[in-house]
Design a protein around this nucleic acid. Sequence first.
DNA 1: CTGTTAGCGCTTTCAC
DNA 2: GTGAAAGCGCTAACAG
Lengths: 345, 345
Amino acid sequence: MDINELARRGGVSVATVSRALNGRPEVSPATRDRIRALADELGYAPNASARALASRRSGLVGLLWDTDYRSGGRQHPFLQEVLVGLKEAVNEHGQGLILLPIAPDDDPDGYVRLARQYTLDGVVLMGVDECTPSVAGLLSGALPCVALDLAVGGPRSASVSSDNVGGARAAVRHLVAQGHRRIATVTGPTDLKPAAERYAGFRRELARHHLPCPDSYVVAGDFYADSGAAAMRRLLALPEPPTAVFVAGDAMAIAAVQAAQQDGWSVPGDVAVVGFDDIDAAGLLRPGLTTVAQDYHRFGTTAVGLLAELAAAPPDRASRTVVLPTALVVRASSVRTPLEEEATP
Amino acid sequence: MDINELARRGGVSVATVSRALNGRPEVSPATRDRIRALADELGYAPNASARALASRRSGLVGLLWDTDYRSGGRQHPFLQEVLVGLKEAVNEHGQGLILLPIAPDDDPDGYVRLARQYTLDGVVLMGVDECTPSVAGLLSGALPCVALDLAVGGPRSASVSSDNVGGARAAVRHLVAQGHRRIATVTGPTDLKPAAERYAGFRRELARHHLPCPDSYVVAGDFYADSGAAAMRRLLALPEPPTAVFVAGDAMAIAAVQAAQQDGWSVPGDVAVVGFDDIDAAGLLRPGLTTVAQDYHRFGTTAVGLLAELAAAPPDRASRTVVLPTALVVRASSVRTPLEEEATP
DNA sequence: CTGTTAGCGCTTTCAC
DNA sequence: GTGAAAGCGCTAACAG
């Protein structure tokens, strides 16, 4: 069942069939509908390869996701939701999503070649280092690229990230509203953009409330659990320990809560904790972890929208960044009496 | 830079280039190497669409993953690792991985059409219901299909799953070794294969030790956290509560541990708990959750191997199932004195 | 509005 | 061992 067969049975030419199926304006509504009806009555599906070959567009979006990047996979607790959003959006656009293999780091056009090979419409990047020659090579080309949680520059690129600053500020604001004045933070590796921004938001909100932030109240972590536990212990060992801690990632935050509890402190009684990310475990713990949630699903849909935008726009536009709102999820780790929550807003 | 250009520069015909690049035996080793060297010197990448169109094989494996299936995504905590394994294996085979859109449930050849459209080499199914007409239609066709964690039958299908029975038995054996005699279980929905098998393994191992299993010691859950908490409360309210519980999924197990603690019981002091899956949170909790780990990465690699096997085999072979070993990860939730672990094996 | 036709870039007989 | 040539199934000029 190919386009010729369809044309024959429909009593029209293949050109007309093609036009009807692609919704071209030149075809009359009557024949368009007739052909379309016939097509799905016969279960016709256009061959994607033939279509791509002839039109020089595959309708495929490549996902560049470096699974080797740091400790191999578990560091993107949200990948799954991003992927779902991406997939749904891509399909809604009538496109397909293909997972790209990893190109050698040092080959500046490993990915460019892959993109050409599949005639990709665009590429979505996540969990990659934009400075790697292979990635930089891709970004500097004319192919639409959208990076997640990563600021990139390039003739046809954009990025989407969460409002890390705003999320951190909301966390601090919440802690201040709970009556805390001695608020510390455990940061992520501040060479990573999200970590740097969360830290900046933390400082800014603290300043807005004229609260001090001694150096000893800032402990660097690495987003992994162990560093969170260690950081919390260091904070609680201070002569004047904080009464609240904003931890820049949930894995660290959870470990921090448990380290505190293990050392005999009560959470939130002695020390309140707020995390960032809203990973699954945050809701499974007791006390539940108050945390800043990101809209992972929207990452995907936004990325696909940007890709389409980039494809249409002139090639040399300034790189755009879309910032997605975050939401504070209040659980027990930061609220003395959960029930008071609603009573005293 | 296409095959013609390459042929011209190499002073040979396109046919020879094609043969050289595809490692065909007819071409002389000398020209083969020469052409290949030239190809990657010039950064030539064969156009995937043209290749697929001419050869009727795309080198693409489709991933059928129903993101709508029950509560939308979070129920596959291990998807990410499976995906990484899948991707790596697929790429090693020189293939690509494409995420298939969801076809309407009631269309028996929605997926068949998709597969034809992309000229797929095969399809990997995960998190889908094999009874859905659309999925059943795909399975009954001649396209190689491999299902994960799902027993499927079809002229060219196979499945891969974890040794759920063995894992459950290992869990029970461990509890018995810890001195427990009153061992209960919280099951998953036993209409799902993994849940049924874990339950079967539980019973079998209990029987092997001549331990009783009263009906009240078997509580049905649904793999979600809430059901785990409820089940645990029911067990602990029994006149003679169990001293150990095997919970068929980590999300339930974690909630069970916390419910017990919240009600004033000590884990593992009063009741030991062993879960299944080894999700991230299992290691983040205190006490850490003893659990049965699956080799998710290997799911992917095994699936790809099976796909290749199916493509080569005669179309009507009996459907094969590969069972992957599981591993018990002992943490604090099942061991009275963690340090004794090594001392008293 | 519709049909004819020339490719898209590759693989694959079939000759040599 | 190599080359010539005929498609693979579709899109996109170009005519009409």
